[in-house]
Structures are given as C-alpha cells and as structure tokens.
Simulated assay, not measured.
Amino acid sequence: MATPLLIDFDPGIDPVVSLFYAARHFDLVQVTTTHGNASLTTTTRNALRLVGLGGIDAPVAAGSPRS
C-alpha cells in the first residue's frame, strides 16, 4: 500500500516534476495550491491543468491567498 500524500505547492517547473513523481510513487490524495510568483487563481488553474494533463486522480483545491 502506497503512503498517502497531499501536495501543497505553487506550480512551477520544479514542483511539476515533484507532482508527477508523487502521483506515480505515492497515494496522492489531494493537491492544494498557494500563491507565489503568481496569484492563487493562476496557480490553481495551472494545477488543474497539470493534474488533467498527467491523468492524475486527485482533487485540486485553492489554499490561502496570503501568507
């Protein structure tokens, strides 16, 4: 049985590699997004696209819009 994992991130190049790795090697139970170099709306939209592109079966939710 794979270890359950939740990823909270601001989708950029390095985090995308981590997302795809986690989806393959762990039980990815949810993806949440944070603001960073882009707004929370943008990072959430990017995460939704990446999850769809990777065929990842995990819900995506927006996190806090500020630190």
Rank of each mutant, 00 (worst) to 15 (best):
L6K: 02
L53Y: 12
S39E: 02
I56H: 10
V31Y: 05
A2L: 08
V31S: 09
D14I: 11
T33S: 03
T3Y: 12
M1Q: 15
T3W: 11
L50G: 02
T44G: 05
D10L: 10
Q30I: 07
Y21P: 05
G52S: 11
R24Q: 14
L5T: 04
I7K: 10
P11G: 04
T44H: 07
Y21T: 15
G54P: 12
T44L: 06
A61Q: 08
G63M: 13
T33N: 02
S18Q: 05
N37E: 07
P59I: 09
N37P: 00
L48Q: 15
T32C: 15
L53N: 00
P59M: 10
P65R: 03
T41N: 08
D57F: 08
S39Y: 02
G63W: 12
G12S: 13
F26P: 06
L19H: 04
T41G: 04
V29Y: 01
A23R: 01
I13S: 06
H35L: 05
R45G: 09
G12V: 06
A2Q: 00
F20Y: 15
P65C: 02
A23I: 00
G36A: 14
A2T: 00
P4Q: 09
T34C: 14
F26L: 13
L19F: 01
I13V: 11
T3C: 13
P65Q: 06
L50T: 03
I56Y: 07
A61M: 06
T32L: 13
A47V: 09
L50M: 09
A58G: 13
A62Q: 08
T42S: 10
T43E: 11
L48N: 11
S39L: 04
L6W: 04
L28Y: 03
R49T: 06
V31H: 06
I13Q: 12
T34E: 13
A61W: 00
Y21E: 14
I7M: 15
N37L: 01
R45A: 15
L48W: 05
S64D: 15
R49S: 07
Q30R: 12
I13Y: 08
T33Y: 01
A2V: 00
T42A: 12
A23N: 07
F9A: 09
P59C: 09
T34K: 12
P65M: 03
G55Q: 09
A61D: 01
G52H: 07
P65S: 05
S18H: 03
L19G: 04
R66S: 14
H35F: 13
L6S: 00
Y21F: 13
I56V: 14
G55F: 08
L40E: 01
F9V: 05
D27K: 04
L5V: 02
D10S: 14
L50I: 05
L6Q: 07
N46W: 04
Q30T: 11
A2K: 08
P65W: 00
G54Q: 11
I56A: 11
L48G: 10
F9K: 10
G55W: 09
A61H: 01
D8I: 03
G36I: 06
D10Q: 10
S67H: 12
L53C: 03
H25S: 15
S18A: 15
A22T: 11
